[in-house]
Nucleic acid binder design. Sequence first.
DNA 1: GCCAAAATACGGGAAACCCCCAATAGAAAA
DNA 2: TTTTCTATTGGGGGTTTCCCGTATTTTGGC
Lengths: 233, 233
Amino acid sequence: MEIVDLSTLPDAETRYTEFLKQVCEKHDMDHAAYAGMNPASGTVAGFVTYDDAWTEHYQNQGLIMIDPTIHMARRSIAPVDWSRLERGPEFQRMFNDASEFGISNQGVTIPVRGPFGDIGLLSASRDCSKEEWRKLYTHVIGDLQSMAVHIHDHVVSSDEVTSALYHPNLSTREVEILQWVAAGKSQQDIGDILSISHRTVEVHLRSSREKLSALTTPQAVGRAIAIGLITPS
Amino acid sequence: MEIVDLSTLPDAETRYTEFLKQVCEKHDMDHAAYAGMNPASGTVAGFVTYDDAWTEHYQNQGLIMIDPTIHMARRSIAPVDWSRLERGPEFQRMFNDASEFGISNQGVTIPVRGPFGDIGLLSASRDCSKEEWRKLYTHVIGDLQSMAVHIHDHVVSSDEVTSALYHPNLSTREVEILQWVAAGKSQQDIGDILSISHRTVEVHLRSSREKLSALTTPQAVGRAIAIGLITPS
DNA sequence: GCCAAAATACGGGAAACCCCCAATAGAAAA
DNA sequence: TTTTCTATTGGGGGTTTCCCGTATTTTGGC
């Protein structure tokens, strides 16, 4: 996955980081971090309040691949309290490293999903006693959830790459045919349904593949679903 | 904030309806409704605090097809305040009917998405002045968002159909190959990548199609994505 | 209006895919 | 131990898809 550099946009980077800092202040958190992903474009956008040292270490060590908070939150609907994560080797490695950079292993990660397969993760952490954390958690979880939705909504709508992928310029015929393909119809079937030659169906399908930068029709169907052009059936 | 534990209450239907009633009481709402959908299974689960008369009318008239709150929320990340909906003919028809059953056109719909293409919509409405609504809205939106996540999480994990579809019995090899197909590889490519014959690849693919009840490979890819078995790439 | 680009439409031939069949080895279940 | 299931490979042959063309209509910009 390639990391999108949003700093090309004037003050987006600082704006979001500032937002995270405000979240920390308001809810008594030490640190906050946001990561937004779009499976279709394969892009990742991230903003953190951590020191550069930890961010650098995180990237250099490829911790994103083993980060248990991300692993869990990607599969969850509800917020993931880090205290409920499985204490596996990944967890140990990750949080041993983190503690060296002064980062607590008490925190929460909130997943937010958009309609097009995009997902945003808002994490917040604080070093304190277990009781204190429990109190804090139940007190701020509602607000944090709103914050997560808020930042993901903004990031998604301001990301040019994502926006472009949200609305590829497929003709109605192309979408129509792609939808039938996803429904399990053959080109001949679709031709009969639409009263056109199966040759023509194939042309539209090829054009769809090109516009979605897909090598094969199955890949094109996958991408069309991911960006909400069609629905599985 | 105390969250009502959904797992304590007896049977599903009354449990969820009871939960919605509690949400109403707690947040000064007239009515609340939840609708959960899974595009893969095509199942819809609904729980409401409305009178049976309105529910019946809603279904008989097929209002779900034109309901602007659903239309909008399905495409949104953030909560949708009904006051910001476009005042089109659908809106008029819908809320004219609704007012006859004593239902306000002041409300909010909160979308919640799971990792497998499932989506839940929690709606709450209240008849009051605009100022009062605005105040109420900003005050309870965080809590409502938590409630939405809470109920969707429970509905999804308790729905047998959904659960079954979440974990179809595909072998690791089959999933592996399906993932490569979604990545745009040909059967020959995949055979080379996995160091097996392209014949074998085709067998696994066929088996995958059968297990997913798919007529074609593109359809199988679509379904596998919809249920989170693989990710688009 | 005019021209370029895109959308829509059709066909031949080569490549890929899919379905029928059979067969082996190993793992898991009975 | 026997049986069943999974993973693997293969042949033959029909079907489908894909790449190469061409042609007409529609759309959009100057």
